[in-house]
């Protein structure tokens, strides 16, 4: 384990831990969605750091990058995780937007943003009778 791994993996996972703490300790739906956004950012950082190679350049050739198209191997970082994260960021926005709309709808009907207890079916059947 080198210092870089400690800083990057440690920092990213602490960030994810903050998000998980948020999900576990907060009931407000919008706050929970924010916590999930933090987790999403952390996971995206994880993916990109998995593809990082020390001392290499960004995966773009030609122009002012100074890397020739024929010598990319061994001189740039792995482009796959970056492509995946590009996809994941857009997906994150889509899920956030939809979750927010559901939260707004819930608020409009109940006047609250707190998702009250879930049941596994063995309790909380009182509401049904009304």
């Amino acid at each position: 384990m080198n210092g870089l791994a400690l800083v990057f993996y440690g920092g990213i996972l602490l960030l994810i831990a903050v998000g998980i703490w948020g999900i576990l300790s907060r009931r407000n739906l919008i706050k929970v969605i924010m916590a999930i956004t933090i987790i999403a950012t952390g996971v995206n950082l994880l993916l990109v750091s998995v593809g990082y190679i020390s001392g290499r350049a960004a995966p773009i050739v030609g122009g002012d990058t100074g890397i020739d198209a024929s010598s990319t191997t061994g001189s740039v970082v792995d482009p796959i995780p970056q492509a995946l994260v590009l996809t994941a960021i857009v997906i994150g926005l889509a899920t956030t937007a939809l979750a927010l709309v559901a939260a707004v709808g819930y608020y409009r009907k109940t006047g609250s943003l707190e998702l009250k207890s879930w049941s596994y079916g063995l309790t909380n059947e009182k509401e049904v009778k009304k």
Partner: peptide, 21 residues
């Protein structure tokens, strides 16, 4: 009228987003 749909949808949206990450 009772907004039951939003309760289910909000819960599913949040938990499935967590699942996918």
């Amino acid at each position: 009228e009772k907004g039951l749909n939003w309760k289910g949808a909000a819960g599913y949206a949040v938990i499935s987003a967590l699942a996918s990450f």
